[in-house]
């Protein structure tokens, strides 16, 4: 499953981080690497972006930016 497909309340472990270079750098900054626990905690009124709980911080990410980040649902 991909990060952007997570439903509200879903938790998962990041399996593979794939995105374009710019986005990857941003994601690495906030600590989104393989093995990271993520939880989908919020949806914006138009469903995109969604907010994820990543290492204690709530981070909004656009679907397009995380559509190739593989997650194993817990």
């Amino acid at each position: 499953m991909f990060l952007c497909d997570m439903k509200l309340g879903n938790k998962g472990i990041v399996k593979k981080v794939k995105a374009n270079d710019n986005i990857i750098k941003r994601l690495l900054d906030i600590g989104l690497i393989e093995g990271t626990l993520v939880e989908c905690v919020l949806k914006s009124p138009f469903n995109d972006p969604k907010a994820y709980l990543i290492r204690g911080a709530t981070i909004a990410i656009r679907d397009d930016d995380c559509k190739e980040i593989e997650v194993d649902l817990l």
Binding site: A19, R26, I30, A51, A57, T58, A60, I61, R62, D64
Partner: peptide
Amino acid sequence: PSSFTLELP
């Protein structure tokens, strides 16, 4: 559009 990551404090 470029990427968008925003912390919701």
